[in-house]
Design a protein around this nucleic acid. Structure first.
Lengths: 275, 275
DNA sequence: GCGCTTCTGTAATGCAAATTACATTCGTAA
DNA sequence: TTACGAATGTAATTTGCATTACAGAAGCGC
């Protein structure tokens, strides 16, 4: 690691910290101080950023790439808790829990991550209530999402959960087209399954059904929703709004929690994120 | 509502707010100011404190009684998210979400509740970072719990979830006895089921099995755990510590999330809370 | 191109748990 | 004490999904 390399990374860290919505509250001086402590790291696709055993005392800010948060059981079952998109913070619970992480974060694509020492952040929060409130909002927002996912696991069938997920994907990555909406992210059936808490086979079957019902259309990785309203109707929801520009809300960490069997090898999010 | 009654209530509110761990951070002056805005209300057993539709902009502090948080579907399925014990805060997500509550809070026993206007609290948080950090910790703590519950729903069987719940109850309400641990709270099978996300019948059967395996003993509402270690072993967990005094940690909001069919009538937590 | 792996599709079988349908006991208010 | 609703116990039946087991297709490095 030569000096210029280090400088480059630090410069990047500075830029990204300043542009993360969570830190908008800080004054220029504070930002500079925080950035002094920030360190940036690059993780190749598939690499683990932290493990459930790590006693991490750092908060992470994703600069580039995509990160997957998942939970794994000793016997190899795995669930995807959510994805982190650039500009988002993750691992934020370590800020206060004096315990270890309870999940695993891995780079779903080559990822540049900025590490912010928890110690520092806590100090900043004490001096800057705005920041503290921002963090509270963030954690609360994600808690609300998890509660929703919990509910859907309790109350809804595999099929309904998958449909719900498709609707969320449409809202997040959807782009209106001549006929229907094309979803600009491609996930494998296995990943969809891990998100909603089902098996790969179930997802394959359900997608097939939905297609033959004329609700969606699948052509090699490309998913298109033909009848948004009818789809939303099935699960008794309002059809989400799908913009031309989309990417509705950047407060991500989306998706439901799911389960999947870990086949002993890396599984990766396809990189092609159209749109 | 005559004046003296009002005064009485306000005095109570004052006392309780001052004694809630969350508000220890505030100075005497701040406390007094907050208390000016606090209002206390009494809810009879079974009454709803807030509904999923309420646009509540208040945080609640339970002074006396017990509150149940649950989630209900349009078709009558119901899940218990957790219970609130005296001294604990609830409804805290409303502090920031500009939306409605997503759950329902009802008095599981006659309950005295102190209402703190969200507007006020937000102001206090801006002036007192300690308070903001306290709130963050609280929300984060509960989020971590929910994530654990989600995992157990995904990865564990009905049986294992029930055992886990029994262990938690032992830790919270357990009291060491000559042989085994008596659990000082009595919940109906239906309630246990709603907490772990199973049906009443399943719970009845599993409890029966556990009894015939010599792990527990049930005699009219009274649950006794005979072999804590073996029980914990079944679910691959460390046996929880059970004090003579117990009530380990007051940061409650315990239990897993569950499901149950709402039989169109009130269901109440038995009042007898031994210990 | 070829061969490899990763993904997708399909179908039979198994199983945990919900559903349904009662019988019994308990608690408690009349 | 009786009577009634609530809580518990048990069992047969159904079902949603996981499991298991392949076979074909698509992507990709060589």
């Amino acid at each position: 690691m030569n000096p210029s390399n280090t400088m480059d990374r630090m410069a990047k860290a500075l830029w990204h910290v300043g542009h993360c919505s969570l830190f908008q509250q800080l004054s220029a001086a504070q930002l500079a101080q925080l950035e002094l402590k920030a360190r940036s790291r690059i993780f190749p696709k598939g690499a683990a950023i932290y493990l459930p055993t790590d006693h991490a005392d750092s908060v992470f800010l994703l600069a580039e790439g995509r990160v997957r948060l998942c939970s794994v059981t000793p016997d190899g079952k795995q669930a995807i808790l959510g994805f982190v998109e650039p500009g988002e913070v993750f691992g934020e619970l370590a800020l206060f829990q004096e315990s270890n992480h309870e999940e695993r974060a891995e780079a779903a694509a080559n990822a540049t991550v900025i590490l912010l020492p928890g110690e520092e952040l806590r100090e900043f929060m004490e001096n800057c209530p705005q920041l503290a409130i921002g963090v509270t909002k963030l954690i609360g927002f994600r808690r609300a999402r998890i509660e929703r996912r919990l509910r859907s696991l309790l109350f809804r069938s595999n099929r309904d959960r998958l449909i719900q997920l498709l609707l969320e994907l449409a809202e997040q990555y959807g782009k209106k087209h001549a006929f229907g909406i094309t979803v600009g992210i491609s996930l494998t059936h296995q990943e969809l399954a891990s998100i909603i808490g089902a098996t790969r086979e179930s997802v394959t079957m359900i997608l097939g059904e939905l297609q033959s019902e004329g609700l969606i259309e699948i052509a090699r990785q490309k998913l298109r929703i033909l009848d948004l309203h009818r789809l939303a109707g099935v699960v008794h929801m309002q059809p989400p709004s799908v913009g031309e520009v989309s990417r509705s809300e950047s407060n991500s960490l989306q998706f439901q929690m799911g389960i999947r069997k870990l086949p002993e090898q890396e599984e990766t999010l396809r990189d092609s994120v159209g749109l």
